[in-house]
Design a binder for these strands. Structure first.
Lengths: 236, 236
DNA sequence: CGCGGAGTACTTGTATACAAGCATCCGTAT
DNA sequence: ATACGGATGCTTGTATACAAGTACTCCGCG
């Protein structure tokens, strides 16, 4: 928790850039110029640069000294790592569920699921609800804060998921799986919840190779390859 | 993964400060001044400041705008979170062990264990070996890179471990547990490995309350409490 | 036409100057 | 003696100037 209490430009810019990267509005491989970003955002290089450093630590951007900064391409290895991490954590979390579930969180999850079933659900709305749903499950077992770490590590996975859903059918199948997991948990059937959770988490992951064949330019090939310096910074 | 290829002052300073915090040479609660650190290290504020921002994101330091920066006190909640995370990941890793273990890694682990059994083992050496041992286990199942994420998240846990061992007996019991885990793995007995691993990981954790009673000033009480501004920056 | 090299325009890394805010200490008034 | 207030010295946040290095462009030469 990089808590800088008072509102600072850096925090705002960090969150904004992070959002742009995760939503693919800043495409993998795109060149980022500290100067241009600073000019676009109406601030100096300092907060922009510090934000990029944080994003680099998360693996969302790559900074090559004296060369340039780039939105990192989706790295299949990092996607697999994030998949393993979240699966391990979320499954272990199910084993720590208390006998009496917190009714407030349960109600919140139920409301979340209701919104997921709305027919006019947009993609970004679904991702927000999905994120909140999984974090809520972690809170049920008292490990809500661990989700922060998982969330920080799964940037590559999230981008791959977005790629999959952008060119895929509706997220209806995932919504149904969410329901299944939730019902198993509230029904006290932990083994069933584990099975449903594992199935759910792997559903997205198994799609990645297909996506990669479809849009190879968004994926990393060699980890140390330097992207071309082109300014594709077009947004808003 | 924050790869800035060419050597930069920032990377060096970041690693140095991180080491000082994790080894408790910079005590929890100590005040850090960007200016003083810069002067001590012979550089300007910029690389120091950027390092502190990274450490803040890891939760190892806290930055209060216009007030000061402090080495974060050990937060029992974050220790518990890290414990849960590493246990989930390391146990799940055991389930992914291949039938044929990589002989190179196995040999490396064996050599590591031999060094752990040396009678003149220093504490810092033990911690280094311990870190390498657990990372090696993850590599056996092909999840070596995930250890990076776990390592980044377990800063508070590591500091608690050091506190425990500083005032505790020798790490001999942990070395024996390492051996037990290793033997179970090479013997192909995954269930036994899981049991041994869980026992091992919880051995340290269960000691924390005792340590806390002994040195309460190093632990956080209220998450939002601002430490006193005193310059105890004494090292080397 | 092909190729090489100097110039140039960009990049990030670092240092420094200034801005804004908090805390403490000290002097003054009550 | 005590309460209040302003000066002062610290802090981090931001902006900017400069340094070092890469890559591309373009012109001249073979």
């Amino acid at each position: 928790m990089a808590q800088t209490n008072g509102r600072t430009n850096r925090r705002d810019i960090y969150l904004k850039l992070r959002q742009l990267v995760l939503t693919l509005e800043l495409a993998p491989g795109a060149a980022l110029s500290e100067n241009e970003l600073a000019a676009s955002l109406g601030v100096s290089r300092t907060p922009v640069r510090e934000s990029l450093i944080l994003l680099a630590q998360e693996g969302l951007v790559q900074v090559f000294p004296k060369i340039g900064s780039f939105v990192s391409r989706v790295d299949p290895a990092q996607v697999a790592d994030a998949q393993f991490l979240r699966e391990a954590v979320e499954l272990a979390s199910l084993d720590d569920l208390p006998a009496a579930l917190d009714p407030a969180v349960v109600g919140e999850l139920r409301a979340n699921l209701d919104r997921q079933r709305r027919s006019d659900l947009g993609l970004e709305e679904f991702f927000d609800l999905d994120e909140a749903f999984h974090q809520g499950l972690m809170r049920l077992s008292g490990h809500g804060n661990v989700w922060t770490t998982v969330a920080a590590a799964k940037g590559h996975l999230d981008r791959a998921r977005r790629l999959g859903l952008h060119e895929n059918e509706s997220p209806a199948v995932f919504v149904a799986q969410h329901r299944e997991i939730f019902d198993a948990i509230t029904g006290g059937n932990v083994p069933l919840a584990r099975t449903a959770m594992r199935t759910h988490l792997r559903a997205v992951f198994d799609d990645i190779e297909r996506i990669r064949a479809h849009s190879p330019e968004l994926f990393a090939t060699d980890a140390s390859s330097v992207p071309v310096r082109r300014n594709i910074v077009v947004w808003e």
